[in-house]
Amino acid sequence: MLALIIRRLAQSVLVMLFVALIAFVMFRYVGDPIASMVGVETRIAEQEIMRDRLGLNDPVFMQFLRFIGNAVQGQFGISYRLQQPVSELIMSRLPATIELAFASATIALIGGVALGVFTALRQGSFATGAIMAASLVGVSLPTFLIGIALIYIFAVELGWLPSFGRGQVVELGWWRTGLLTESGLRSIILPAITLSLFQLTLIMRLVRAEMLEVMRTEYIRFARARGLSDKAINFGHALRNTLVPVITITGLQLGSVIAFAIVTETVFQWPGVGSLFITSVQVVDVPVMAAYLMFIAFVFVVINLIVDILYFAVDPRLRVDGGAAGK
């Protein structure tokens, strides 16, 4: 048990090192860090002095070690564009993204499970066909088009909901939340829906497939034979068995929701890390890009680790088998 966790941890550290290497290569070799920092008028001799002072003349291996050392302490240097420490920038943008990700995951989970159950139980009905077709349309619609359409309909034409930003925020320590004010709650609706649609179709299809699978099992037939009501069978037995993988997948997807938010945040001017990242890509603000990459990798590693350990705790069979747990 302990051995497995240690092995998983070691693997996670390896993954982080690998991502750190990519981030470092980017940081060091994409553009000249000095050229990005100084104006065109700085003389060559001064640039050399700065190069020395920043340690850019040290052996590459030393530089990489120092990069990791700094990264562990959460230091990624100073944004070329905004001239502020990158870690502070990311921390100040993080609450917005996390709130958006959770809101959209909630919508995706509730909507996806409901539609999935419905389509599984009403197989072959017209509504099911329509929902299944609509789900494919949803997958084929690029997120940015959905966002633009929602803004046009609900913000501009109908004027029901705000078109951009987070509305009024309240500070809880360092965490700025938009979930405690009316304008904040209204603001999150459109971006959360936009971001959730893709995950919603995913969850819906998963729930449907799992439900159909479970319904075929002996155990359900037996329950039916026992004379249990449809309702009890559908929700008490079938759905409950379906939910474990669904929740796992939703958890695993949370990380990608955070990363997927890039497009949604751009369209809705949502002040999260995703829009910070896209601005940074456009102006080649490498410290922010490198830090964002490390941040996302960290989120994934942590989520994966938790899921693995949970699996292990829940399913005794894995204890014999060893590390076969996975996604």
Partner: peptide
């Protein structure tokens, strides 16, 4: 585990 769009953006950058 990384969304394709993020990887593509990084490579592009």
């Amino acid at each position: 585990s990384f969304p394709a769009i993020l990887i593509a953006l990084l490579i592009f950058g």
